[in-house]
Amino acid sequence: MNCISVKNVSYKYPYTEGFALKELNYEFEKGKCYGIIGANGSGKTTFCNLLRGMIPHFFEGELTGDVFIEETDVRNWDSNLLSTKIGYIFQNPFTQISGIKETVFEEIALGLENLGMEKEALIDRVIEVVKLLKLEQLIKKNPNNLSGGQKQRVAFASIIAMNNDIIVIDEPTSQLDPESTAEIFSIINLLRNQGKTIFLVEHKVDLIAEYSDEVIVLKDGQITLSGSTQEVLSNMDLLQMGVMLPQASMLSYDMQKANKQLDSIAITKSQVIEQIKQRVGV
């Protein structure tokens, strides 16, 4: 079943001349993780705003074509209800903390309070999420005084608590150190295993290779390449689109050049290791 479909969509921000998104077409299926990549300014965040319904509900401007979220035209969605359907997490950990709660536990509960959840159920739900994301040590802390990585984990917890079917995640780790990045990706992996539909914008293609089912490449607001992760991330054309190939793919191509090619172009480290193991015969 399609959860979001985008048909002939073009979008122009107010007071600008060029289109930020051009002639987009895509059918997104339920339960898959979609990696969205592209150079800076290629329209990734705008695309997220489209999927999240912020376009046209928060961002004015010119929207042509149709976006259907669960079979309903985005224009007909009550924008206040969309937040109960689609979760949204983005790069800046600091602006995602509400600033009105004094403990992490209460911060995570905020979305559920807004949804009007009864207290008993609410507390149980927050406990569940705290355990899932291993935030036990943080619950009594003031969310405003956490580190960036901790804040980002709390931001994830706050959205996950709301139990949306669809989650849009826009460069969640671009301001984080490697350790926090690993923690965030283990959370994304949890969401995948829960069967959520995920849209993930991420610069680090190696991580996209690990976690997404399909990849969409944007360049100048257009989808220039899309398909299964294996297919897209092993395509040398990516380099022309301002995107790096995963290290594993580069290695595979280098080995090809050196006439020591692998059976197929690997995109993740584990694939490379597997293939080399086979060759060496371990």
Partner: peptide, 23 residues
């Protein structure tokens, strides 16, 4: 930042219709 905050709070059902509860 306030622009991002508006988006973040929207994602937390800040404008959800109906009465909110309190922890």
């Amino acid at each position: 930042n306030s622009e991002e905050k508006a988006i973040a709070m929207d994602a937390r059902a800040f404008y959800a219709p109906g009465k909110n509860t309190h922890l």
